[in-house]
Design a protein around this nucleic acid. Structure first.
Lengths: 278, 278
DNA sequence: TTGCTCCTCACGTCACGTGAGGTGGC
DNA sequence: TTGCTCCTCACGTCACGTGAGGTGGC
């Protein structure tokens, strides 16, 4: 059993949210220590909480979720309700897209400015087995660097490093926030699938790709420019954005990397941005 | 100058919202009667309010809108901000679509149930000049019938009725709400374009169409079924849904309709549902 | 006079977040 | 003992909505 802190990190919700859900009776801890009042959660409760969070993000109110999750999950009513959710979300998406068009009309024809010659290349990205570590970090600091250090050390212990570039998934698809939801990925050999922390990272059917040199802080602006230049094409974002580190710096404490992919000077760093489209 | 009530109807916002915006200084009435305290708005303020509402629906906070609308609308910062909005909305849409897929995965493969043989036909719909009347009405009552009566009477006065079926646009794209945003449309001859209340209703490049017989109350369920049966196709809702009244009842007070499109018995009503797709 | 609209002011709502003041565990 | 985590309780936030109690205009 986990205390509220570790459990909240696993579930990617705040402690405050867990206490709130306990208070309204939506999601209760597995056990409450009668001495201390500490809430204790079991990892087995994660799927239930994930379902609740999904429904919230789909626009359900707490009261609706109470109803949906209190009845047997296999009941027909439940499925019908789920169908209603589908419709609701489709409608929400359609309304959002309509507003997008209204916004474009309001701002006026985005002259040729944005459609400058950004060297966007469309590619397919193959599925990749990788050791991954996911966390919500400050977009400012060097937290991601630390995560890569830990991940490389773990892979070194595993002894199945694949000779490919490490990369990162940006799950919230948006650089412009104080905190971002990132998953750092170290490619490993296929045989390592099944080890703890290793998963098959999904392929991308259609990715718009750009490379850049130097500081990582350029990525957000480049991402914006890429989205802008896709404006008239009707393309939509279709999943987490990836940053692939072609040449980068590393501490190499407890592991060793191929010197070909390393650079001492930030100005020689080389990174590719991959934007999944539909 | 209009009092708050009529202005709120024109702008499709509540009186409470207008008072709230006045209170926080976001959107002020053109004049306030010093005697009564009555707020007086000019129709010329409508575009500004529409812009504010659009920004709200795009997810801007009141504070952000204050900043965006206080500077000159042509300033470069403003356009950049608008670009940021574009990104924000694209990201929101992508996240929503991702959740849609998660939902489908959660509910499990929607067996062959929904994909039953709904006779959906894809068609193009031509642009149509029409006299239109738009309002937010209760989805339960017969308010829409009343709107059609008024509209037909107006068109009779105009004397340019086109021999086509009247129809309705459901702007919120969702039947399942207490109040719906509808625009009733009476087709008129092209020459009537320019008369008050007459506009060219947009074409639909791709519409999924179904006809049904009898009570209008069947439309919501049919709409749901249509969306469900489109599930695997990747199609998205692309605009307001239309109901076309092929055969229907009418009071004909002050106007006369072609008997071919009329039915005395509800059971002989004939309606087509047109769902714009992308 | 009636019925409708408008006013202000205070409080409610929704899903949490913030912060104070205090305790438990290593 | 220190530093960290946890607790409760009360209040704050955001963008309005609700309702009371009262006035203006035809």
């Amino acid at each position: 059993l986990l205390r509220i802190g570790p459990f909240s990190q696993l579930a990617r919700v705040t402690i405050k949210t867990l206490r709130f859900y306990d208070g309204v009776g939506l999601f209760r801890p597995a056990r409450v220590d009668p001495q201390t009042g500490y809430r204790l959660y079991s990892p087995g409760q994660l799927p239930a909480l994930r379902r609740i969070r999904l429904l919230r993000e789909l626009g359900c109110s707490i009261a609706e979720i109470q109803v949906l999750t209190s009845t047997s999950p296999q009941s027909i009513e439940n499925r019908l309700q789920a169908a209603g959710l589908r419709r609701r979300l489709m409608v929400a998406v359609a309304l959002a897209e309509q507003r997008l068009r209204q916004l474009d009309a309001l701002v006026g024809p985005t002259e040729a400015v944005a459609h400058s010659s950004l060297p966007l290349i469309e590619r397919q990205i193959a599925p990749t087995p990788a050791f991954t570590l996911r966390d919500s970090v400050s977009s400012a600091g060097g937290d991601i660097h630390g995560m890569f250090e830990v991940a490389e050390q773990q892979v070194a212990l595993l002894g199945r490093r694949a000779p490919c570039s490490p990369f990162m998934l940006l799950h919230n698809m948006d650089y412009h926030r104080p905190r971002i939801d990132v998953e750092v990925c170290i490619p490993v050999q296929t045989e390592a699938l099944g080890s703890a922390g290793v998963r098959l990272v999904e392929p991308i059917a259609r990715a718009a790709c750009v490379e850049f040199t130097g500081e990582y802080s350029q990525a957000p602006a480049l991402f914006d420019a890429a989205l802008e230049s896709l404006e008239g094409t009707g393309a939509c974002l279709a999943g987490p954005i990836r940053e692939v580190y072609l040449r980068f710096g590393a501490d190499q404490r407890g592991y060793t990397l191929d010197p070909q992919c390393l650079a001492n000077d930030v100005r020689q760093y080389r990174t590719e941005l991959q934007i999944p489209l539909r």
